[in-house]
Write a protein that binds this DNA or RNA. Structure first.
Lengths: 135, 135
DNA sequence: ATTTATCCTATCGGATTACTAGGTTATTAT
DNA sequence: ATAATAACCTAGTAATCCGATAGGATAAAT
């Protein structure tokens, strides 16, 4: 299950991408349109900015804007930034790998094999879909 | 991410399925072989029994056994029992559907559409794979 | 009657989640 | 300059969930 943080982040990015031009969109505008708590959204957009997905501008007329074309931002990037691993188990995660305490031999683990299948099919979709598809 | 409960449950079921015959397997045997806390595993197997996946027998020579052929137990059943929804968002879950507070129109939501794709590809794999494949 | 092994309820510390508070800094308009 | 605007940043917090444990009750075999 995705956290609300991730879900809100995706909706906010889609909102920004839908504006098309590079004029900054304010937190308040997105929060109002998408029914997201202003303060919570603030922290989410900050995370996306620090991850290099969004740029920002302070002061009047400020806000957030995309740093790249929407079609160059795959869903994998966004979800990994906000949610962390895409895989169902740490031991099959490409970007957040962790060994299982209980597994002596990973390759002998049948659950491992199944979760690799799930991971690959999910990755296929999330890599193929970009922010442009979302917007 | 799957909880340890689900992961342990899957490993335990695979262990039981691997025995082949219908002789009950004890918690202690599984816990030792798979490096799972005895008490924690106990509560997991209880859940699987109450869900109609496992049967049990008390007293000496007792333990847990499969109620159906391993090839008749799809991964979807097990994961839904232990983990709950398979979908990444409640609003795209088939068995645990919940409406989003923030979404006025579900069909207009772009995140929704993406998550349906992910759900379907995951379901395809988890429906096709049975406990027999895991074991 | 004793041993074995599941059944069941309750609890618990720690981590995570979804927010909220409140002040700081940078930019623009007057 | 000064005031207004809007992002920046750190901290905290209530509620929930997770992983695990405790300890007795029940049922079956010896």
């Amino acid at each position: 299950m995705l956290s609300k943080k991730t879900k809100y982040g995706l909706k906010a990015l889609a909102f920004i991408a839908r504006q098309g031009d590079k004029t900054p969109v304010q937190i308040a505008t997105i929060a109002d349109s998408e029914n997201i708590s202003h303060k919570f959204l603030e922290s989410i957009l900050l995370t996306l900015r620090k991850a290099g997905i969004l740029g920002s501008k302070k002061g009047k007329g400020g806000g957030y804007y995309l740093l790249k074309a929407a079609s160059d931002i795959p869903m994998t990037d966004v979800i990994r930034t906000l949610e962390g691993p895409i895989a169902m188990l740490p031991c099959v995660s490409l970007n957040f790998y962790e060994k299982c305490d209980d597994c002596p031999d990973e390759h002998a683990c049948s659950v491992h094999k199944l979760m690799i299948q799930v991971r690959d099919s999910t990755l296929k979709i999330l890599r193929h879909n970009t922010l442009a598809d979302l917007a």
